[in-house]
Amino acid sequence: MLDTGPADEPFAIAGDKMPYAKRSPVGMWSRIVCAPCEQSFHADDEFLIRLVRNLPKLPTLNDSDGSAVGTVLKDYDAQEIKRSVLSVFFRAALSEHEIFQQVKLGPYLEPLRRYIADGDVGAPQGMEIVLRHVLPPLGRLIVSPVRVRFGAVSAYRLYLPFLTAAIKVDNRDWEDGPFRAAQLTAGFTPIALRSERPSPSEMRIITGIHTKHGRQIDRMFARYRDRYK
């Protein structure tokens, strides 16, 4: 169970298939699978909680004009981040909760199960991860995991508080560019790409959600609007 902040800082949880928006006082996930199962992932979740809480304190990666293009996850191990994110993704694939219904892993599910449950060395082939640090207030809006394409490569977007994980479910490599450079890789300092605004595909999703749940979401974010102008 991920609990990333105090109770007076809610996250909005919404998805295309959900009949209403939810206010979550304890972060994104209250329970993905059964309680005993959740306990077995306690260490992974605690690791992610510490990472999310520490994001504002981490150094930025700047491009040639001085603008921040990434967050350097200094002193964090890429493989540990990868395992913790995939443990959430694995539970999402097993969950019967409505917010996770789009997660269908097919032939990737069993290799992922072995990696999570049996301690197989190395993540399943074709499941590389790129992280994105999403700044407030957008980082407080949690959307259902969605399947997307980055060029020809198939992947899922998994939304965590202030982090989005692009999880590849494809044996082809990311195309040349920021994703290939930022892919979590053993032995290298992990980097999360930095974003203050949604991508065009995310804007379509968020616009659709806001059309259905606009008043609820506006109420959830009203107290933070001035803070993040």
Rank of each mutant, 00 (worst) to 15 (best):
K57A: 12
A14M: 15
A35G: 12
E9V: 14
A7C: 13
A93H: 01
F150I: 05
R197P: 09
S64T: 12
Y108I: 02
R180L: 00
H210Q: 02
L55M: 12
E38P: 14
M203C: 08
P25R: 04
I129T: 04
G70P: 11
E80A: 11
P137F: 01
I13G: 11
G70C: 09
R113P: 14
C37L: 09
L112R: 05
H97M: 13
S195E: 07
S195P: 07
A155M: 07
P145H: 02
A35L: 14
H213D: 14
V72G: 04
R223Q: 11
V33G: 10
E202P: 10
Y224E: 06
R149M: 06
N171Y: 10
S84V: 06
F11N: 09
Y108P: 08
V85A: 00
Q102N: 14
S87K: 01
P124T: 06
D77P: 01
V146T: 12
K22D: 15
L158P: 12
E128D: 15
F89E: 11
L131N: 00
E98R: 13
D118T: 04
R31M: 14
A21E: 03
L55K: 04
M127H: 06
A152G: 08
M18F: 00
E196D: 13
L112D: 13
D218Q: 03
F90S: 09
A117V: 14
P36C: 09
P56H: 05
K57S: 13
Q39L: 15
R31Y: 10
N62R: 12
W29E: 11
L112K: 07
R172C: 00
A68M: 09
P145G: 00
R197Y: 14
L58H: 03
A14D: 01
Y76M: 02
I217P: 12
L160N: 05
H210Y: 15
E196K: 05
M203E: 15
A123H: 15
T185D: 02
P178D: 10
F150A: 01
P198H: 01
R227P: 04
A181R: 09
F162V: 06
D173H: 02
P10H: 07
I191L: 13
G106Y: 10
A12E: 05
K229Q: 13
S24V: 08
G119F: 15
D63P: 05
P111C: 07
L55N: 06
N171W: 06
Y228V: 11
M1H: 12
E96K: 11
S154P: 00
S84K: 03
L141I: 15
M28H: 04
A186Y: 07
H42G: 06
V52A: 11
A14R: 00
Q79F: 07
S201H: 09
I205T: 15
G126T: 02
S40H: 08
T211I: 03
F179K: 03
L138S: 01
P6A: 11
Q39Y: 14
R31H: 12
T185N: 03
V52S: 04
